[in-house]
């Protein structure tokens, strides 16, 4: 995952070709299954971009958590760590944000909302703290430890919504609705919440941090070539990887807060349709570039929004869109691997 900052159109071309390949394969599959590919893809397009409402309330709404989590994944990746546990950190953040929202509901919104974000950042970071310690102390692969903690987080959410955080009537496995003061403002006439601006701001901040600051340079050096960074630059690569992993967990937690305070207004067991995993694809497609992640996040948001419309209008099961996503990722990884002399090995 090198970071070419020179003007180079090739990766963008690869991504576009990969997307085209995915769509062509989907069309072929639909035709083979007896569906009308033109009608299905047309419905998909309308569902994602067909109206201002669809673009904001379906595409950008879905893109928001993908962008935020994708940014976190990329940050860890640049620092030399693979965080596969964003799904769990997302849930940890969602639990923390929901809890904070109930504690802070009496405060005015400009105060309550940032505080729920802080709680979620802490929750996400806490969830990745164990893998960080295991990695630093004992060299346990974070790929394994973060992945396994996803299951623990999902179980914890189930416990919360059926126990201490269940709604007062004790019927539904979900929390009570969070107070109005903790809810994010919406773009008028749509369901898009202010969390999208947070995602954009985070992308800009990360782009600046990585490209323009000494800390960002050290992080990239530590991630790209840990031994060299240690020997030549006297950078503690392991520490950078740990910090990047912590930050990545915190950011995934923030995504959980945005989802609770902007979309669901309550804690649920199945709050995420796998954002933590799709976001990895989002980050890989953008090759870890913060602003590219915004674009690829919107692309994946559009694919999943379009998938719903495809099922509504053309009767094609929405899960078929995963074919496109998978082809895009495989094609990009393949192209990257071919473009290198050595096989692509991400992370430490």
């Amino acid at each position: 995952m090198s970071a070419p900052s020179t003007f180079d159109l090739r990766p963008l071309t690869t991504s576009a070709l990969a997307l085209a390949a995915g769509l062509v394969l989907l069309a072929a599959g639909l035709a083979a299954a007896g569906h009308d590919p033109a009608a299905a893809l047309g419905a998909m397009w309308r569902g994602a971009f067909g109206s201002w409402y669809a673009f904001t309330s379906a595409t950008l709404l879905r893109a928001t958590p993908l962008i935020v989590i994708g940014l976190g994944f990329a940050l860890a990746l640049r620092g030399g760590a693979l965080n596969i546990g964003a799904e769990g950190q997302f849930y940890a953040g969602a639990i923390a944000a929901t809890w904070a929202a109930f504690q802070l509901g009496a405060l005015p919104a400009p105060l309550a909302i940032p505080l729920t974000w802080l709680a979620a950042l802490a929750g996400g970071a806490l969830w990745v703290l164990v893998p960080v310690v295991l990695k630093r102390r004992f060299g346990v692969l974070e790929v394994i430890s973060t992945l396994l903690l996803n299951f623990v987080a999902e179980a914890l959410v189930s416990l919360m919504v059926q126990g201490p955080m269940q709604e007062p009537a004790g019927i539904y496995p979900q929390s009570a609705p969070i107070p109005a003061a903790a809810r994010l403002p919406l773009l008028p006439g749509t369901r898009l919440h202010a969390g999208f601006l947070v995602a954009l701001a985070l992308a800009a901040a990360m782009a600046f941090l990585l490209a323009r600051t000494v800390w960002g340079f050290r992080l990239r050096a530590a991630g790209a070539a840990p031994r060299a960074a240690e020997l030549i630059g006297r950078v503690d690569a392991g520490r950078f990887a740990g910090v990047a992993l912590l930050a990545s967990g915190a950011i995934a937690g923030l995504a959980g807060a945005l989802e609770v305070s902007g979309v669901s207004y309550a804690l649920y067991q199945n709050l995420s349709p796998g954002y933590g995993f799709t976001a990895i694809a989002v980050a890989l497609l953008a090759r870890g570039h913060p602003l590219g992640i915004v674009a690829s996040g919107i692309l994946f948001g559009a694919l999943e929004a379009g998938a719903g419309a495809m099922q509504r209008e053309a009767g094609v099961p929405s899960v078929t869109v995963y074919v496109v996503e998978a082809v895009v990722i495989l094609a990009v990884l393949l192209a990257d691997a071919r473009g290198r002399s050595t096989p692509a090995v991400a992370g430490a």
């Binding site: 669901s264 199945n270 709050l271």
Partner: peptide, 9 residues
């Protein structure tokens, strides 16, 4: 028309 929707959102 039919659609599948898994998450609350």
């Amino acid at each position: 028309s039919h659609v599948e929707a898994r998450t609350p959102a």
